[in-house]
Structure formats: C-alpha cells, structure tokens
Amino acid sequence: MQVGIGLPTTVPGVTGTGLLDWARAADAGPFSTLGVLDRLRYDSVEPFAALSAAAAVTTRIGLATMIAIGPLRSPALLAKQAAAIDALAPGRLTLGLAVGARRDDYAAAGADHRTRGRALSTQLAYLRGEIAEFPVPRFGGPGVGLLVGGSSGAALARMARYGDGYAHGGGPPRAFASAAAKARAAWQDLGRPGSPWLWGQGYIALTDADRGRDYLRDYYAFTGPFAERIAAGALTTAREVRDFIRGYADAGCDELILFPSTADPAEAERLAEVVA
C-alpha cells in the first residue's frame, strides 16, 4: 500500500503560498500522491486549479481528486480540466469522481441533483469511451487513472463498469474492508478481469487536535450530528496514524490518502515522520 497526503484546499486560513509550499514539501516527502477534495459552497480552492498549481511546483508526486463531484461539471469541461492537469504533469493524474453528498452544491452549480447518478454514468462513459471531439488524454487503464466513489449498489456497479478502481469515502479500516469486498463483488459481477484498485482516505490532526476537529465539524456540518463522529475519527497521534495505515493495508487498500485538518506545515512534517 502507498500513502499519500491531502492538500489543505478546504481548510480555513490557507493561503496560495501555503498551498504551494505544502505541495513542494509533499513532493520532497515520502508520499505517493497529493489529493484534493471538492466542494462548491465552502471557502475552498477549486480542485483542478489547486492541482494545476501543485503540478507547476512538483516533479514526481501523483495528483488525485479524491473525489471531484463529477456532475457539477459538463462531461466536456471535466475532460478539459483533467486534460490540463495531465498536460502540466504528464502521467501523474488520477481522476476520482463521485456524486458527492451535498445537495446545496448542485443547486449552486445549477446541476440536477435528482439525476446525479445517471449524469455521472454519462460522464464516465464520455471519458472512457473517448467521445470528446477535441484532444484529451486516455482515461482509464494505462492513461489517466479513473476512480469512482459512492457506497450504493448503483455506484459500485458504475465503478466496476467504467472505473479502474474504487475511491472509498473514509472511516475506520473495518468499514473500508467491508466496502472493498463489495467493490470486488461488483467488479466480478460486471465481468472485469482481475480486481479493482482500492483507494482509501482518512483525516489527520497531528498538530492541533481541537482546531482540526473544529474544522471537521464545520466542514461536515451539513451531515448534522454525524459531523461529530467524523471529527472524533480524526487521527491525532502518530500511533493512531500507524494503526490506521496498518488496518488499511490489511484490508487490501492500494493507496491511502491522509487529509490534513489544519494548514499548519508542521502537520505534513509530522505525517512524513510517521510514514517514512
């Protein structure tokens, strides 16, 4: 299993220079991938713009959306955005897509929330089927890696139909293991050979647990009391991080992205020490 780190694009107080420094540090550190989240109605940096900036100041690290809310963008625009990252950082992009959990983002984007599942299928079929009428990289297989997230049966079928693998939404290793079994079952059901690439994610708050949890409560306030659980699940010590990494590796995770809950550069340094 490889371990990646999140770019703090949704964390309060983050600056442009802070993001660039973070990306450089990640590129110099023991991380496989730099991941970004996606949210429209929140104080955050747009994921493809953030990855473009990161691409410009890094040389080797993988760049991934974990996930981007596909249906907020048209298929062609999404392909164009992803193509831009691939042009700036050839061979380094992994495109994770899902419908997301936020109705308000759909309203803000003028996208239909009711048909989001079908819209994502169309988008994936567009990318994978090479439908674009302008040059874009290959999506899937040897090209830009394509991950699909979501926990419903329909989402898993979509993953197995169009994706290279599964982007899990977060939780304890046990939850990941259960989702991984479902993803493999879907993969087999759709007749795909081999098994899906499995990506997981978690939150760390290694420098200031209280501040990190406050951010998570705010970021997930739309889930109601569940936000408290997400905040409680943040990894606040080196030992918790190590146990989490071991749990994910045992559950068959291929790539685990740990997202920071503060923009403090010391957060990345602490994680680098644990992961190294």
Binding site: R118, G153, A154, A157, A181, K182, A183, A185, D189
Partner: peptide, 16 residues
C-alpha cells in the same frame, strides 16, 4: 440478477 438495464440497484457483497 440485474444488468437488464445499466442503471440497476444491486446489493453487492460476498454471496450477494
């Protein structure tokens, strides 16, 4: 089961 149409609602897991 499923696959009659692309957008179906399977319930995946071991032994589904």
């Amino acid at each position: 089961a499923g696959h009659t149409v692309a957008e179906s609602r399977p319930d995946y897991g071991p032994g589904h």
